[in-house]
Simulated assay, not measured.
Amino acid sequence: MKILAIAGSNSETSINKQLVTYAASLFENAEIETVDMNDFEMPLYKHQREVESGVPQQAVDLASKIDGAHVLLVALSEHNGTYSAAFKNVFDWTSRIKNRAVWNEVPMLLMSTAPGGRGGLGVLEAAEKRFPLHGGNIVGTFSLPFFNDNFDKENQKISNEEKDNELKEMVQKISAIESILEK
């Protein structure tokens, strides 16, 4: 099984990257590739730029990675209740590739974490509404509130047993769906 783990943040110390990396590690016998938004920096999207220069190669490269995956793990950082500017720009450019849906119906676990009590619920709600319009096949969602209290940074795993079990149940659900699809 090929898993593409995407952290929707360009922070070098992204807590969502830590979460998505941990979630990916829970899959057995999986080939995992983690996407760093910093590898997909592109000019700020604007229609005139697209007309003049076309879609940047980085957007095409990300689309290719999505198409090659069996499962997408997407952990979104929340900036003012929605996506980070870095993620939104990559999403916008990728949506401009002709004859494709951004997520291409690849089964997806959508996640978020934050230092506060809502755990990124605002960005999850926004993505749950928007992603299906762009080929998002959201199999489940997961939110980890109070990241600093619920994630063991030294061992790089969720320390809150209830939340850890919740994520593990999601991983099992996606693994079961993927094994059915492979038959």
Rank of each mutant, 00 (worst) to 15 (best):
D67T: 07
P56Y: 05
P43C: 04
F87E: 03
G54W: 11
K46C: 15
V60S: 08
T82S: 15
F87R: 07
A63I: 03
S64Q: 05
V74L: 13
A59W: 08
A69Y: 03
Q57T: 12
V35T: 01
S77D: 01
T82Q: 14
H79W: 14
F87Q: 06
M37T: 04
P56G: 09
D39M: 09
E33N: 14
M37E: 05
T82E: 12
K46F: 15
S77K: 02
E33R: 14
E78D: 13
Q58W: 03
V55W: 06
L73F: 00
Q58V: 10
I66E: 11
H70I: 02
L76V: 12
N80W: 10
V71K: 07
N89T: 03
V55C: 02
P43F: 06
V71F: 06
N80K: 08
Y83A: 11
E41G: 09
S64R: 06
S84G: 04
G54M: 15
E41M: 15
K65D: 03
E52R: 07
R49D: 11
V74P: 04
T34R: 12
V60L: 13
V51P: 00
Y45R: 05
P56C: 10
Y83C: 10
H47M: 11
H47W: 03
T82D: 13
E33L: 11
L73D: 01
G81R: 15
H70F: 05
A75I: 06
L73K: 07
L73W: 01
V71N: 00
F40Q: 00
L76W: 13
D36I: 05
M42A: 04
E52I: 07
P56V: 09
R49V: 08
S64I: 07
N89W: 04
Q58I: 10
M37V: 04
E78N: 13
E50G: 09
L72G: 05
A59N: 07
T34L: 11
V55Q: 07
Y45N: 03
D61V: 03
N38I: 15
H79F: 14
N80I: 07
L72F: 07
E50I: 09
D67S: 12
V74R: 04
E50V: 08
Q57D: 15
Y45A: 01
A86G: 00
V74T: 06
P56I: 06
H79G: 03
E78K: 14
M42R: 03
G81V: 09
F87D: 02
T82A: 13
E41S: 11
V35L: 13
H70K: 10
T82M: 11
L72K: 01
Y45K: 02
R49C: 04
A75L: 04
A69N: 08
E52T: 05
E33W: 10
I66R: 01
Y45V: 00
D39G: 08
A59S: 09
E78Q: 15
S53P: 03
D61S: 01
D61A: 02
L72C: 10
R49W: 06
K65Q: 10
P43G: 06
A86M: 02
V51M: 02
M42H: 04
G81E: 14
I66Q: 04
E33A: 12
K65E: 07
H79P: 00
V71S: 01
S84D: 02
